[in-house]
Design a binder for these strands. Structure first.
Lengths: 346, 346
DNA sequence: TTTCCGCCGGAAAACGTTTACTGATGAAAA
DNA sequence: TTTTCATCAGTAAACGTTTTCCGGCGGAAA
C-alpha cells in the first residue's frame, strides 16, 4: 500500500499481462476497446506512473539533459539556462544542472555520475584542458556553449573577438586614448576578448592596459576598482570581462569619487537585465544569452536524435552593441601629457 | 568497444565474479590483496563507472534531490539554489532542478517524472493549492522553502509578517504617511507581507494603498510604476513585493522625473546583490536566501536519512532590515492637504 | 468447409546492478 | 589431528520496465 504501484500491479488489476500494459502506455500497439478501458481504469485508480529508471535501463534514453554552468548567480548563465530549459521542455527533456563553481575538484566525479543519467550535455563552464578528454569520453552528445570547444565537438558562442573589437572602435571613436581591460588570464574566451580589443587599439596606434580579476563576479569588479583608479596613469575607459565585473566596478568607483562616464567610461559584456538599472546605465555588448541556451539545446537535441555532428559544427552568434550611459565622448588629449608628439611614435 | 563497460566486463577482465566487483566498489566487503589489485586494474583500464540507474533500481536511492523553483532568473532563487547545492554536494547529492515558471501546466507531469529520479524534493515555487495533494502523494520527503507549507510538511521560511511590519515601522518612523504596497494577490506569502504591513500602518492610524503586479519581476515593477506615480494621491513611499519589482520601479520612476528618495521612498524585500548597485542603493529586508537553501537542504537530507518529520517541523529565519539610500526621512505633512486635522480621525 | 492472413495479447529475455545466501578455504582452538 | 569459525569469493534472485517473438483467434477468400 505504501509502495509505489508497479506495472505489475496495473496488469493484475486490469487482468492483462504486463506486456500489454507497457505497450498501451507507450502507445506502441492498439488493443480492443474493453481492454484499453480496463487498463486505463487500473492506471487511474492506482495513480500509476511508470518508473523512469527502469525504462531508461532498457531504452538507454533518460529524457534528461545535463547542463554544466560556471556560476548560477550570474544572470548571463541563468538566461542561458532559461533558454535551454524552454527548448528542452518543448522536446520533452528535463534539465539536470551542475554548478561547477562549487565543485571544481569534484567535476570529474560529477561528469561520471551524470553520464548515465542524461542523454546529452551542454558545457558552459570554463574547464581545465585536462578535463576535456573526460568530456570527449563522455560517450554521449556534448555541445559547448559560450566557450571554445575542442575540435570535432559542436559548439555555439558569440564572436568574442568581434565584440571586443566593436567596443574598442566605440571607445576610440569617442575619443578615449587610455583604455584598460579588466579580465582574467587563464581562460580562452577571455583571450579572444582581449585579442579583439588590443588588436583594435593597435590599429589605432594605442595600447591596452590590463588588470586582472580572479573571477567574473561583482565582488571581483569591486576589488579591482581601487587599483585601476589609483594607477598613476589612470585610464579614461575600462572595458570589463562582463557586466558583473563592470557593475561591481562602477559601484566602488562612484564611492571613490570617480564619476562615470565623466571621469571614466565603463563598458561590460553580456547585457544582463540589471545593466539597465545601474547608474549610469551600463553600455555593453549583447551576447544573446537566452538564445545561446536555446540554440545550444537545439544543437544537442539534434545530435541526440542522431544527426551527424559534422554538419552541425560550430555556430556563431553576432554580438550587438548596446549603447547606454556609462560611456561618453571625450575631447581627446592630442598627445600624452608633457611628451612631445613625436615621442609617441617611438 | 563503443559501449560503456559494465560490471561484467570488469569481472571478466579481472577474472572474478560480478558480485565480487560490486562488493569491492561499494567497499562492502574486503578481499585479498591480489584480488583487489586485479579488480582495480580492470576498472582503471576500462574506465569503468557504475551505472547509477541500475544501482538506483536496486537500492531505491538515486543520489539526487529535486528543487522546484519559481524563476531561475531571480537572484533570490539562485542564491537559494547555491546554498542548497553546496550542502547537497557536501552530502553527496546532486541537484535536479525544475523552473516552474516555464511549465505551469506541465508541473504535474514533471513532478511525476521527478518522483522516481530523486530521493527528495525542495519546493520553492508558489503552486496552486490543488497541486498540493500531488506533492503530498509524492512518496518521498519534501521540504517547502520560502513559502507556506501544508500541515505536516516540514518547511522553512522567513517571517514575512515580521519583515513587512519592520518595513512599516521604518517608513512611519521616517515620517511617511501615504504608503503603497506593490504586490500580487493570489499567493499566500504575499498575504503575509501585506498583512504585516497593513497591520503596522493601522497601528499608527494609517491605511495602505495597494497596486498589483502580476509577477515578482523587473518588468512588472517597470510596468506598474506609471500608474502609481500618476495616481492623484501619489504615495510618499512604496514597498515592493521584492527587490526585482523595486529595482524595476525605481528605474522608470527616475526616467519619469520622480527622484528617489527625495520625492518617494522605495523599499524591497530579499536583499539581492544588485540592490547595492542601483542608484540610489536599495533599502530592503534581507531574507537570507542562501541560508534558506542550505537549511532547506539540511532538513531534507535529515528526512531522507530517516529522521522523524514531526520533530523537524517548521523553521523560521529572522529577517533583517538593510538600510540603504532609497528611503529618506520626511518632514511629515501634518495633515492631508486641504483637509482640516480633525477629518483624519474619521 | 478449408486455407490463409491480420490482429490481439502473452511469455520471456534483457538492461546493469545489489544483496541475500551458499561453499570453500584456511587458521586457530581443542 | 579434528573441530570450529571467520574470511573470501561466487550463484542467483530481484529491481521495473521494454521488446522480440510467438501462438491463437476470427474472418475473408477459395
Amino acid at each position: 500500500m505504501k509502495n509505489k504501484p508497479t506495472i505489475r500491479d496495473v496488469a493484475a488489476k486490469a487482468g492483462v499481462s504486463i506486456a500489454t500494459v507497457s505497450k498501451f502506455i507507450n502507445a506502441t500497439q492498439r488493443f480492443t476497446a474493453p481492454v484499453e478501458r480496463k487498463i486505463q481504469a487500473a492506471i487511474d485508480e492506482l495513480q500509476y506512473h511508470s518508473n523512469p529508471l527502469a525504462r531508461s535501463m532498457i531504452t538507454g534514453k533518460t529524457g534528461s539533459v545535463g547542463v554544466a554552468i560556471l556560476d548560477i548567480s550570474n544572470p548571463h548563465f541563468t538566461s542561458m539556462v532559461k533558454g535551454a530549459n524552454r527548448v528542452a521542455l518543448e522536446h520533452g527533456y528535463n534539465l539536470l544542472f551542475v554548478d561547477t563553481e562549487e565543485n571544481q575538484a569534484r567535476e570529474d566525479e560529477l561528469l561520471g555520475a551524470l553520464s548515465r543519467r542524461v542523454d546529452g550535455l551542454i558545457v558552459s563552464s570554463r574547464m581545465p584542458e585536462e578535463q576535456m578528454d573526460r568530456i570527449l569520453a563522455f560517450g554521449k552528445p556534448v555541445v559547448f556553449s559560450g566557450r571554445p570547444a575542442p575540435a570535432g565537438v559542436p559548439s555555439i558562442g558569440i564572436d568574442a573577438y568581434a565584440a571586443a573589437y566593436m567596443i574598442g572602435e566605440l571607445l576610440v571613436k569617442q575619443g578615449h586614448r587610455n583604455i584598460a581591460y579588466l579580465g582574467f588570464a587563464p581562460a580562452r574566451p577571455d583571450m579572444e576578448r582581449m585579442r579583439g580589443l588590443s588588436e583594435c587599439l593597435e590599429a589605432h596606434g594605442l595600447s591596452l592596459a590590463r588588470f586582472e580579476v580572479r573571477g567574473p563576479t561583482l565582488v571581483e569588479g569591486e576589488r579591482v576598482c581601487s587599483s585601476v583608479i589609483l594607477r598613476k596613469d589612470k585610464p579614461d575607459a575600462v572595458v570589463c570581462y562582463n557586466d558583473m565585473v563592470a557593475i561591481g566596478f562602477m559601484g566602488v568607483a562612484r564611492s571613490l569619487g570617480v564619476s562615470i562616464p565623466e571621469d571614466m567610461s565603463v563598458v561590460g559584456v553580456d547585457n544582463i537585465a540589471f545593466g539597465r538599472f545601474t547608474s549610469p546605465a551600463l553600455t555593453t555588448v549583447d551576447t544573446q544569452s537566452e538564445r545561446l541556451g536555446e540554440e545550444a539545446m537545439r544543437l544537442l537535441i539534434r545530435q541526440i536524435a542522431g544527426e551527424n555532428p559534422p554538419d552541425i559544427g560550430h555556430m556563431m552568434l553576432e554580438p550587438r552593441l548596446v549603447m547606454r550611459d556609462s560611456t561618453a565622448v571625450r575631447t581627446p588629449v592630442p598627445f600624452p601629457q608633457a611628451t612631445p608628439p613625436k615621442a609617441r611614435k617611438r
